[in-house]
Nucleic acid binder design. Structure first.
Length: 503
RNA sequence: GGGUCGCUAGCUCAAUGGUAGAGCUGCGGACUUUUAAUCCGUAGGUUCGGGGUUCGAGCCCCCGGCGACCCA
């Protein structure tokens, strides 16, 4: 894959690029703008198609129209030229240029100057061709934007790398890319409506933070010159949203970017979009219900059905009420031996060794139980599943379970084998919270660089009285993944791609 | 972090260690109803980068880059 960042010397250009540049020069030399502005467009292609839905073949409507689109196919015959123009939304219309209508010079210009990928403007009568194709029979055409690089071949799949590196090209040639790009805002809009209907208000909290918190993850660090201060790109908005609840914004949500200084794979991106919402006086069961409803409403908005079809053709039913399984209970069943939060670490390590799970010195016991659960139980899930009641030592911001010792009121939602969201009965006792954060600080001192820090201002806010509440974090990228079956990088319009050349 | 696969013409891909090819695109020509148009002709290469083995490397070996997939 050689994409030339800097365009090489003119005579080194590949033939196709050189010729396109010459065509642009030709237009400029004639005093014609190769990137014309103010074109007298009377309708979008979609509006045209809607306005003339069912014309029989070989119809002349007598109606004139002017419209623009990107040339994606061209069929030039001697005295009659056809081109398919496509708009960004995927709608297409045919342009026809005949010798009769435009004359020899204009027709020749069209053949000489228009390439696949160019944006062109045509105006003329709305007709259908003898084959019934809705068309503009042009009596005028203008270059709207000369493309200097050739489009990839339309009917072959674009290479995977070009797809993410040059999404603008991907969007032009691959309808699925357009579909994803448009489904995402539809889903986000649906989520906003879902929250709004339930009385949640949207707030914006800092992305640049002097103290990171709300998740266990390594942050990106940046620097404020004016304040002479190191700042963190947030790993989660949680601690600020909870501050908002303390202040009386009792149902809040935020949809925004989080940044985690970690590697990327098919389910992880270093920057990703998260919905978080908090509701005073609710708990993790109430949050589970809302979460399911939000996702189901998003499926209807984005896919038109609760049964979503993935890229591989498989169908996944998101309907109904989703099962809840107990983490330690289901793990015990799978192992055939009782595992509880009280199970000693040596036994957990032995079980991990059996399963081939690597154990780091900084891993707490609860982490081992979660890893075992991921290994033994998660693959058995056949529908969206809430996993209930996590170990306390991996969940420093969650309230202890009201009846079960050693676990907290937390669920993770698994769909298609990956975690797409988490919900808590939030820890609101400032004394317990301080203890938990001190334990995290101790882990950090032992070398766990994902451990949380003690955030004194957050604790101060809690000390002013934080109402009991439920909270949820739901990955928007992952929501798109479970609706489409695509990898996370396909759900993100412009995912992070490493530079093509070595540094 | 580990493993596997891939990287060759504008695009998608071929090529036992022995002259780097095809289709589409492009360019020239023919064609007034095509729609992945068709027909004739033709051009197009730093084989991801660096090093090594060899009489000879796209292919084998080493180092590096980028991507995809799988595993922990």
């Amino acid at each position: 894959m050689t994409t030339d960042d800097a365009v090489p010397a003119e005579d080194d250009l590949p033939e196709q690029m050189r010729i396109r540049r010459e065509k642009r020069e030709h237009l400029v030399a004639r005093g014609v703008d190769a990137y014309a502005i103010g074109l007298p467009i009377t309708a979008t292609i979609a509006e045209m198609r809607a306005g003339f839905p069912d014309l029989p073949p070989d119809t002349a409507t007598g109606t004139r129209a002017g419209l623009a689109g990107r040339v994606i196919f061209a069929r030039n015959t001697g005295k009659l030229c056809f081109a398919t123009l496509r708009a960004g939304d995927g709608t297409e219309i045919q342009a026809m240029l005949s010798l009769d209508k435009v004359g020899a010079d204009v027709l020749q210009d069209w053949k000489d100057l228009v390439d696949l990928g160019d944006h062109v403007f045509v105006s003329g009568e709305v007709i259908t061709s003898r084959r019934g194709e809705l068309s503009i029979l042009a009596d005028e055409w203008r270059m709207a934007a000369k493309a200097l690089r050739p489009l990839p071949v339309a009917h072959k799949p674009l290479g995977e790398e070009t797809r993410v590196r040059q999404r603008y090209v991907d969007l032009v040639v691959r309808p699925e890319a357009q579909r994803m790009a448009r489904m995402r805002p539809a889903v986000v809009a649906s989520v906003r409506q879902s929250m709004d209907r339930r009385g949640f208000i949207e707030v914006e909290t800092p992305m640049l933070q002097t103290q990171h918190g709300g998740a266990t993850a390594r942050p990106f660090v940046t620097r404020s010159n004016a304040f002479d201060l190191d700042l963190y790109l947030r790993i989660a908005p949680e601690l600020f949203l909870k501050r908002a609840v303390v202040g009386g914004l009792e149902r809040v949500f935020e949809i925004n970017r989080n940044f985690r200084n970690e590697g990327a794979d098919s389910t992880h991106s270093p920057e990703f979009t998260m919905l978080e919402f908090y509701q005073a006086y609710s708990d993790y069961q109430g949050m589970a219900t809302i979460t399911r409803e939000v996702i189901q409403e998003a499926a209807l908005a984005g896919c038109g059905s609760l049964i979503v079809t993935h890229a591989d053709g498989s169908e996944h039913d998101l309907g109904g009420v989703w099962p809840q399984v107990d983490l330690y209970g289901s793990l015990s069943d799978a192992l055939g031996e009782q595992v509880t939060p009280a199970t000693d670490r040596a036994r957990l390590e032995a079980l991990c060794a059996q399963a081939g799970i690597e154990v780091k010195a900084t891993d707490v016991s609860g982490k081992l139980a979660e890893d075992l659960f991921e290994h033994y139980v998660v693959p058995s899930f056949t529908s969206p599943t809430f996993v209930m009641d996590y170990p306390v030592d991996t969940s420093p911001l969650v309230r202890g379970h009201r009846t079960k010792p050693g676990v907290v009121e937390k669920w993770d939602l698994y769909v298609d084998g990956f975690e797409s969201g988490t919900g808590y009965s939030e820890l609101v006792d400032p004394v317990v919270q301080r203890d938990r954060l001190m334990q995290q600080a101790a882990l950090g001192a032992r070398g766990d660089d994902e451990a949380m820090r003690v955030d004194e201002d957050f604790l101060r806010a809690m000390e002013h009285g934080m109402p009991p509440m439920g909270g949820v974090g739901l990955g928007i990228d992952r929501l798109l993944m479970l609706l489409t079956g695509q990898g996370i990088r396909e759900t993100i319009l412009f995912p992070l791609v490493k530079p093509e050349r070595a540094q």
